[in-house]
């Protein structure tokens, strides 16, 4: 009895480690990719000294952060101040549990997978709010307020986009969502939704041009202002893990997850996880390019875009998709 539990715990821990360690390594590499792309756009070289092509730059940075002193402001609310980066980082890793890398390659496969990811990513705002409030300082507080409003507004349109995809799939299970795209990736029939999803994902992860919560020019890096050393690094890692998660979600919802581009000989011989990683990387490079190219939005423009453009457009698409599927009798799972 007990040994059975121990066996399950041991086996599950191994599975979790086999997911989290590659995700953390991927985060380290993706930070390097981000800085490299950013550098190339601006005709600089970017990090290219530490290790081959500068690949170990992130490791060097992480070491630097670990050995720095953690400073906790005297006026801060200590428990919440320390909890905030922990919450950010753990929530960013939590959602990876349901991401499928292949037909049978996942840590868990739950019926409400997409809702789970949506729920966990909507909790991500707490790390930022907690950091902003607990710092007891003006800039972090303003950053936290901005971020709370921004993330809640863009979640609404992400929710409606997910509804559109689910209408075409008829299941909340991520594996089913990918398998439903065997004939055509949803990025093609639902192209406007894909674009809106991508832009909302930028806002949801506080990436430029929507990085108002940390806008260094006005808020001296917002909610992170009072953080130092490893706690700052946790925010930073959590942010990139979230970005990767959003790229993974985008490729699962719209780019056919682990499915190959075409189901023909040279393409379908590539193992399925590689396809998903390739798609995530592709989306991430667009994220990085946008960071380098697009200037930051003003706050009222950000809100206008979220509520007055994305919300009506995505709501209209939900109604349009539903009517189309109903009229042409294409609704899935009809009994």
């Amino acid at each position: 009895m007990i040994s059975e539990y121990l066996y399950i715990i041991f086996f599950d821990s191994l599975k979790i480690l086999a997911l989290i360690v590659p995700v953390l390594i991927a985060v380290a590499l993706i930070v390097w990719v981000d800085r490299r792309v950013w550098g190339l756009v601006q005709l600089r070289k970017g990090p290219n000294v530490v290790g081959p092509f500068g690949l170990l730059q992130t490791a060097a940075d992480a070491l630097k952060y670990i050995f720095k002193e953690i400073i906790i402001p005297a006026g801060s609310n200590k428990i919440i101040f320390i909890l905030a980066p922990v919450v950010t980082m753990s929530l960013a890793l939590l959602a990876w549990a349901v991401i499928p890398f292949g037909d049978n390659l996942y840590v868990t496969n739950i019926n409400v997978g997409i809702l789970y990811i949506f729920a966990v990513s909507s909790l991500g705002v707490y790390g930022i709010i907690m950091a902003g409030w607990a710092s007891n300082s003006k800039y972090p507080f303003l950053g936290a307020l901005r971020s709370a409003a921004q993330m809640v507004s863009y979640e609404v349109s992400i929710g409606l986009i997910i509804v559109t995809v689910l209408l075409c799939v008829g299941s909340l299970n991520l594996v089913d969502i990918v398998l439903a795209q065997k004939n055509i990736w949803f990025a093609i029939p639902l192209f406007p939704m894909f674009v809106i999803f991508f832009i909302s994902a930028l806002a949801e992860t506080n990436r430029p041009p929507f990085d108002l919560p940390e806008a260094e020019a006005e808020l001296v890096s917002g909610y992170q202002t009072e953080y130092s050393g490893m706690m700052y690094a946790l925010f930073w890692l959590g942010e990139y893990a979230n970005i990767l998660l959003m790229c993974a979600l985008g490729s699962i919802l719209f780019l056919g997850g682990w499915l190959p581009l075409l189901d023909i000989a040279p393409l379908n011989l590539i193992p399925s996880p590689l396809w998903l990683i390739f798609k995530i990387l592709l989306l991430f490079i667009v994220f990085a390019l946008i960071k380098a190219i697009v200037p930051r939005y003003r706050y009222d423009q950000l809100m206008r875009l979220g509520w007055k453009v994305f919300l009506p457009v995505s709501l209209f698409w939900v109604v349009l998709t539903a009517s189309f599927l109903f009229y042409f009798n294409l609704l899935p799972n009809q009994s």
């Binding site: 409400v112 729920a119 909507s122 809640v152």
Partner: peptide, 25 residues
């Protein structure tokens, strides 16, 4: 599980954020 996830999304992800938003100020 559906109700559990909806509770998380609606109450924790949206309602409580707005509570916090007001109370923090």
């Amino acid at each position: 599980e559906f109700l559990g996830m909806i509770t998380l999304i609606v109450y924790v992800g949206a309602v409580a954020v707005l509570f916090l938003f007001v109370v923090m100020m």
